[in-house]
Design a protein around this nucleic acid. Structure first.
Lengths: 150, 150
DNA sequence: TTAAGTGCAAATATTTTGCTGTCAC
DNA sequence: GTGACAGCAAAATATTTGCACTTAA
């Protein structure tokens, strides 16, 4: 039975507890935002949303927590073709890796899960003798709606 | 007969001429550096190398020219897992798309051409009805040499 | 001739760091 | 109690912009 994409609130916090990583009010707020986010957030958006839960959260704590989450392999960092600005976007790493597509015209972000992608990663691991820790496939182009409209 | 990976010096300049894009001393220097680069360059490295050919080249001209090259689809922009700093790396877009792998231990960058990657892009175009303009697959992990050493 | 391109300096955007005080465990 | 974490302010890094001057076509 496949797990749903909206998944296990509290899992990030559980991971922290499991590994003996200290929990603070600020981290709790940031993790909750990441856990409940319905779209990809950049650092500034994450800061604003976290401050709604705990007004004391500082920008530097957001960046420090993002670094921690990355090191723990709990989130992925994306560029999304820099549709808005030069910063990065973040999302929880869920059970299935997926491809990101960004429409260069309307800015819509789409996700796509593919067995061929899994096969490709297997090929890289085998043919290049490379142990994959993190992978990121981002595609820019035109979505179905915008293809015609161009 | 497959085209070699080190390829056609002057092709970027030829493209500019074909499209009626103005050529300047500064652009000539920047294009030459991109054409002859043997590794991925960030904006600062590109600036330094271009200044050796034409000392007048300014940082802003480098960024403006990079933007132009991106819009023309002549170069790809990469993060290379931010192995050094938060900036971007650039490389000429050659005939065959390739995957980039960055070793998180030794920092080595590897490239890999795969038919499965081509097939995957075909799947995205077909199944998602998405017209791909640019794609970027970056992988972080451990190369063969570093796998043992860890 | 003139629209496009340039350098320069300053602005903006993004991320990191040093320090001192606070809090989770 | 103490080592890890926090806020704050300032620095570091990366990229963009306004403007007056220059140049390719």
């Amino acid at each position: 039975m496949p797990l749903p994409q909206t998944e296990m609130p509290g899992r990030l916090q559980a991971h922290f507890a499991d590994r003996g990583i200290r929990m603070t009010e600020q981290r709790r707020a940031i993790l909750r935002v990441m856990e409940t986010a319905t779209k990809h957030l950049d650092a500034a958006q994450l800061l604003r949303k976290a401050q709604k839960l705990d007004a004391s959260v500082d920008r530097s704590t957001v960046y420090r927590t993002l670094r921690l989450l990355k090191r723990q392999g709990l989130i992925d960092e994306l560029d999304l073709m820099h549709i808005h600005g030069e910063g990065h976007y973040y999302e929880r790493k869920l059970n299935r890796d997926h491809i990101h597509m960004a429409c260069l015209r309307c800015g819509k972000i789409m996700e796509f899960v593919s067995d061929i992608f899994e096969k490709l990663k297997g090929q890289v691991e085998k043919d290049c003798r490379f142990r994959i820790v993190v992978s990121r496939l981002e595609i820019g182009g035109y979505c179905a709606a915008c293809r015609g409209a161009k």
